[in-house]
Amino acid sequence: MPPRIQIISILICVFLVAYVFELVRRKHLSEEYSMGWLVTGTLMLILSVSEGALTWVSGLVGATLFTSTLFFFGLLFLMVICLHFSIRISALTKQMRTLTQHVGILDHEKKALEKKIHQPPWQTGSSSLEQI
């Protein structure tokens, strides 16, 4: 691998790993979601630093250029993480939908109770406190 691209990829991987740590430290990224980025960043760093490992992996996937191997695994990671996020978004959408429905029903119940409380007792036949 040409030294320039090797240095660039090492720098990118080091920056990525360090930035992810910083995001977790500042609580901008949860530990759950940091794992994928940290594992990928570390693996890419190993491949960038160790030419032996890169040669072995390139032979394994049939890549003729070392840079192609890095791009291949970079893209693979992006695909996996996009799918993972789609699954998470679907779950969150479902949860939000359920919450929305219950907020609507609870708000309706709250208004009905408020209406009942504010009715004078002679209209309802019992005191407001009894109704509560």
Binding site: R97, T100, Q101, H102, G104, I105, D107, H108
Partner: peptide
């Protein structure tokens, strides 16, 4: 009419299902 107001527009299916949840309850 009794009115259940959802906090934001959630779509036909969600609104309808809210009514069914109310009916079950």
């Amino acid at each position: 009419a009794e009115v259940i107001s959802l906090p934001y527009n959630s779509g036909y299916g969600v609104a309808l299902q809210t009514g069914f949840l109310y009916a079950v309850k």
